[in-house]
Simulated scan of single mutants.
Amino acid sequence: MNPAATLGTVLLAYLPAAVSPGPNFVLIAHTAAAGTRRAAVAVALGVVAAGGVLAAVAVFGLGGVLARLPWLAAALRVVCGGYLAWLGVRLWLRARTPEAPDGAADRGAGETAPARAGKAAPPDRGPHHFRQGVLSNLTNPKAAAFFGSVLTATLPPTEPTAVKATAVALILLTSAAWHLSVALLFSAPATQRWYAHAEPTLNRVVGTILVVLGVALAVTP
């Protein structure tokens, strides 16, 4: 297979994995609707950066380390699952926090739902949100399945280094285009106004999803 066909196969394999809803989508959309565009973009960039690391690890064969050390893979799975569950519990606790007085929904995209409700965490801490995005993707079982099996199957180790590097760059660009689009869409003022009214219920729904995903990741071999 020539390089162009190989890269096309990689892209066709990655697109469904990127756009299908999962923990990354949930976290970016929730941050965008509840917070600021800047915070959501930071989360999205963290997701993209982690995806690049996972792609490079898979493409250049470093994933063999985990294959040779199953105890390390299991430990990472438990830690990552615990982190997702912790995020979910935090959202449930946030849903129990009393809301701010009326008028909060009329504020623009520059102000956040956490700030409106008087919550402690500043929404625009770029490094904090970037780390959230990184950890979300590193703990994402869908990402692990894709990079650990599908990508390695569509990009054999016999491919030249230049093709492998181009594949990683292609994944990064595709991931950035999709996840940044989600951040921009859900941080629109209209979306934030709607979210201001539905925040407690949505926090519980999103929190439950994250807890279930975290527990499933931690206990599934």
Rank of each mutant, 00 (worst) to 15 (best):
M1N: 12
M1R: 09
P3I: 11
P3E: 13
A4N: 11
T9A: 14
T9F: 03
A13F: 04
Y14P: 05
P16A: 01
A17C: 10
A18S: 14
A18C: 15
A18T: 15
G22Q: 01
G22C: 00
N24V: 06
V26R: 10
I28K: 02
A29P: 12
H30K: 14
A32L: 07
A33T: 05
A39W: 00
A40F: 01
V41W: 00
V43I: 02
V43Q: 00
L45E: 01
V48I: 13
G51P: 02
V53E: 01
A55Y: 00
A55Q: 06
A58I: 04
L62I: 03
A67H: 10
P70V: 00
W71Q: 13
W71L: 14
W71M: 14
L72S: 11
L72G: 12
L72K: 10
A75W: 01
A75S: 09
V78N: 04
G82T: 08
G82R: 09
W86F: 06
W86V: 14
L87N: 02
L87D: 08
G88L: 14
G88S: 13
W92E: 07
R94Y: 03
T97W: 02
P101V: 03
A104Y: 05
A104N: 11
A104V: 11
A105M: 07
A105V: 03
T112I: 05
T112S: 15
P114W: 07
P114I: 10
A115H: 12
R116N: 10
A117D: 14
G118M: 08
P123D: 03
P123K: 02
G126K: 01
F130Y: 09
G133S: 04
G133Q: 01
G133N: 07
S136P: 05
L138G: 03
L138F: 15
T139M: 14
A143K: 03
A144Y: 01
F146Y: 06
G148H: 04
G148R: 04
G148A: 07
V150F: 04
L151I: 00
T152A: 11
A153E: 10
T154A: 14
L155N: 05
P157A: 06
P160G: 03
A162Y: 11
V168M: 02
I171V: 14
A176Y: 09
L180K: 04
F186M: 05
F186C: 08
S187W: 03
P189G: 03
A190H: 09
A190D: 08
Q192V: 06
W194K: 10
Y195Q: 04
A196W: 11
I209V: 15
I209T: 15
L210Q: 13
L213E: 09
L213W: 14
A216G: 12
